[in-house]
Design a protein around this nucleic acid. Structure first.
Length: 449
DNA sequence: ATCGGCTCGCGCAA
DNA sequence: TGCGCGAAGCCGAT
């Protein structure tokens, strides 16, 4: 029994050689507070072997845009430097994961492979393909969730209220300080050459039209700075203002959390240490822990997390029942993307997304609900919302995004509401609700002025 | 400003 | 088997 208990899953048994232990980093792109890296170090030290980190860059990952690659790759550049401080070798591979990992493991005589947990299909497929080709033991560590996804629940949870008690039950055991990453002695036996980042940038094959943004700096260091500033400057009013898209009240941590440049557990620990406004603490930890980890639960246990087949039965039946309802407005993907609807509030949200790579949380719900209202079918609505989310959001392709779209359009984790046109029993949202909550005119002015 | 009804099903108490 | 209650709401009544 140690701190890795229940965080580690043996994906594949195998026979160890005598070579180095390697952490195939994927979702958790950080040096500090990373249980996958700490576990790799532990395995290596117990066996008195060297260890290192490998990252495989897929150059056209699910249509990622330049904005997202730039954020990730700059984070990796910083990661390489920070690993060097600890004398931990870092290797960057590019190409098909199964092929690249297999070749790397063979040529370097790797003895054990460790990776991090990710509920998304494409990551699970890569792991399966890698596992099929290697003969060494293959471990997976949930370094992303505070309570490991596989451990907190063995099934798809119905709603936040069914997962919440399970999380809270385990928090005293899991929400604890991290063990230290130990600095290694410099060793010639297992070392890496510096990565040629210029050539990496040339290899990336992405949509350059979605440019980088300058309001947020990528990397682990900036992630910690952002957390610090949030606690110092915004935390007091977080509970009161977080749902007001005109106020700058949110933590802005989601891009960092998505790429694993900061650990949610670190954020939770710092919030508790700071002892700020108790209402803000409750509200923030609810979003940071319960809702985030509910998203991982949904994507891990529901293979249809990005299709209408993943919706609950009552929602599927109800949407089906209303599929022929007359739509007053319908728009094509291109019209949505260019923010060319009849409604200035919706257009402002899309423009916020296009320009900044981050739409406010309240507006993400409103935005997706209107896409349902203004497309021909719920299936088209869902794929439109996911396409735009994944293309423009800095935290695109995150379980949070898929789950948010499924909540808005498909009633996932929600309850049925009074039946109405198009929506059926799916919770409705409209401009009046937004008007009650915040100053619509200033939001529109801010993003569409 | 605030309240109840809307509507389904999970999970716990009994 | 019954019952309370739920990820961010809407609407009409008071």
């Amino acid at each position: 029994m140690d701190e890795f208990n229940n965080r580690v899953t043996l994906l594949k048994e195998g026979s160890e050689s005598k070579g180095p232990v390697i952490y195939w980093m994927s979702r958790d792109q950080r040096v500090h507070d990373n249980y996958a890296l700490l576990y790799t170090q532990k395995l290596a030290q117990e066996r008195n072997r060297p260890f290192g980190v490998v990252f495989n860059l897929v150059t056209d990952f699910l249509n990622a845009s330049f904005r997202q690659y730039d954020f990730m790759v700059k984070g990796l550049e910083e990661l390489e430097k920070e690993l060097r401080v600890y004398n931990i070798p870092f290797f960057l591979l590019t190409g098909e994961p199964a092929e690249e990992l297999f070749r790397f493991i063979e040529s370097r005589h790797i003895s054990i492979l460790v990776t991090d947990f990710d509920p998304l299909r494409v990551k699970r497929k890569w792991k399966k393909e890698v596992g099929n080709r290697i003969q060494i033991p293959f471990h997976e560590v949930d370094a992303h969730n505070i309570i490991p996804c596989r451990y907190v629940s063995g099934k798809q949870e119905y709603a936040a209220h069914t997962l919440r008690p399970k999380i809270h039950k385990h928090l005293p055991e899991f929400l604890t300080e991290f063990p230290d990453l130990k600095k290694l002695k410099n060793t010639e036996a297992f070392s890496s050459d510096p990565v040629d980042w210029k050539s990496v940038h040339r290899e990336i094959n992405v949509d350059e039209k979605i440019g980088k943004v300058d309001w947020i700096k990528p990397g682990e260091y900036s992630a910690h700075q952002t957390l610090k500033e949030f606690l110092e400057e915004k935390f007091e009013n977080y509970a009161a203002d977080r749902n007001d898209p005109v106020k700058d009240a949110q933590s802005d941590l989601s891009p960092y959390l998505h790429f694993g440049q900061i650990s949610a557990q670190r954020a939770a620990l710092e919030v508790k240490k700071s002892g700020g406004n108790p209402e803000s603490e409750i509200a923030f930890l609810e979003e940071l822990i319960v809702r985030r980890e509910l998203s991982d639960n949904f994507c891990f246990y529901n293979n249809c997390y990005d299709s209408i087949n993943g919706f609950p039965e009552w929602a599927k039946v109800s949407l089906q029942h209303h599929k022929n309802d007359k739509r007053e407005h319908t728009y094509t993907l291109g019209q949505f993307e260019k923010a060319e609807t009849h409604e200035d509030l919706w257009n402002a949200a899309q423009k916020e997304l296009n320009a900044t790579g981050k739409m406010h949380g309240y507006m993400r719900m409103y935005w997706a609900k209107k896409i349902l209202e203004w497309t021909k079918t719920p299936g088209e609505a869902l794929s439109t919302a996911i396409y735009l989310n994944d293309k423009y959001e800095l935290d695109g392709r995150d379980p949070n995004g898929y789950t948010g779209c499924a909540w808005s359009i498909g009633g996932v984790h929600d309850r049925p509401w009074a039946e109405r046109e198009i929506f059926g029993k799916i919770r409705y949202m409209n401009r009046n609700g937004a008007k009650r909550k915040f100053d619509i005119a200033s939001y529109i002015q801010k993003h569409d002025g």
